[in-house]
Design a protein around this nucleic acid. Structure first.
Lengths: 217, 217
DNA sequence: GTTTAAATTAAACAAGTGTTTAATTTTGCA
DNA sequence: TGCAAAATTAAACACTTGTTTAATTTAAAC
């Protein structure tokens, strides 16, 4: 019997072979884009028959949906845990930044795909699930900032909703122009690049957000 | 005789029909991606024969190169002019931010394409021209910041090379997640969206960079 | 008006696309 | 061991892709 019965991703259990397909798809989608990657590319690298993608996921489009779902479920949880921690507001914001950078680093591929493919209005279904995720994340960020404002540590005339764009946008722009920054910072190896993110870039973003939140004019 | 003789874009003069093709290509590439847009799509919308793209530009790949060249030549000049203006450092930075946002807004399409397609290592030729542009821009930004530092207005422990990523990255992330922000800010029309960018988003970025540059801890 | 080059066209090309089919192999359970 | 469900396969499907060809129309120069 065909394993695809309905169109809700959550009902599809993930066996090893499916996860293998998802991992290959993530890498290829991120390297060559959704349209630029063929099912034949995926099946060749994942060492499976081309029919298996349709068999398991229904279609290439649904494969993308499954991929997004599979890779974004646990960020929400991570933020909600941070919210409960009993630490200083500024430290909480710094941890928030680290969580964002770390998560996107871990799932580079899928976040690239998300940005590229979901901009296209056609993929509304995948988009909506992602929008819900972002709304939840925004709520967590809002709570953290408001905690700091209530304690009088953070100024109140900041546009809270635009803080996430500054954090993620800075990081993304850096990543998108990777070869440029590799050149001007002379980051010759993968390790050097990752270290630059972990130290300098993270520090820059934390410094920026701190200045924005505590600076009095 | 075939009009394509060599592979340097600068030698190809742009008549009306070519520019028409470039404009359509820009819109479609930005809407559907490079791979997602077919020459037939372009020729249908531009109301030309499919063979004309190859005839004028040589190939789809070279069309992209021509497009990038055509749309990015004058930003450099704009920044160099700003550098010469005799105004306060902070005002200069604010103008810098406005220039960036305005330019990217005007050429939404091509900057989207640049981010998406140039990440792919294959397009090295187009990428290199763009890298040179970015280097020039970075030099202009560096000069502006250093002017402010010399005057004692800006602090000196900021990572100058990472300021552009924060400016452009914030803006881009906002744009990439357009439908999300339309929803949470209730921006129902194109005009409302553009106004939000012009007022609130620009202000947020200026506020952020100002805080980063003048905040003392 | 004739000639020559450029512009434009429809058609064909080979290659690649996502998906389906029908047959075969493997698996898990009675 | 036997059997039914699931997994896997090669092949075919209809369609789209970027590019080229060869023929025709347009434009300009003499």
């Amino acid at each position: 019997m065909h394993p695809i019965r309905n169109n809700t991703m959550s009902h599809i259990e993930l066996n090893d072979k499916k996860i293998q397909i998802l991992n290959v798809a993530e890498r290829l989608f991120s390297e060559k884009g959704f349209e630029g990657t063929s099912i034949r590319d995926i099946s060749k690298e994942a060492k499976i028959n081309i029919a298996m993608v349709s068999y398991y996921f229904g279609s290439k489009e649904r494969l993308l949906e499954a991929l997004i779902f599979h890779k974004t479920v646990d960020l929400k949880l991570q933020l909600e845990n941070l919210l409960q921690e009993d630490i200083e507001p500024l430290e909480k914001v710094n941890k928030l930044i680290e969580i964002y950078i770390n998560r996107i680093c871990l799932n580079k591929g899928i976040y690239r795909v998300l940005h590229f493919e979901l901009y296209n209005k056609k993929r509304e279904k995948s988009l909506q699930a992602f929008t819900e995720l972002k709304k939840g994340n925004l709520k967590s960020v809002e709570s953290i900032i408001k905690q700091g404002q209530a304690q009088g540590v953070f100024r109140k005339d900041v546009n809270i909703q635009l803080i996430t764009p500054t954090i993620i946008g800075t990081f993304f722009h850096f990543h998108m122009n990777r070869s440029f920054f590799e050149e001007i910072f002379d980051l010759k190896t993968e390790e050097m690049f990752n270290n630059y993110i972990k130290n300098d870039l993270t520090k820059h973003i934390q410094q920026t957000i701190k200045a924005l939140l505590v600076y009095e004019n």
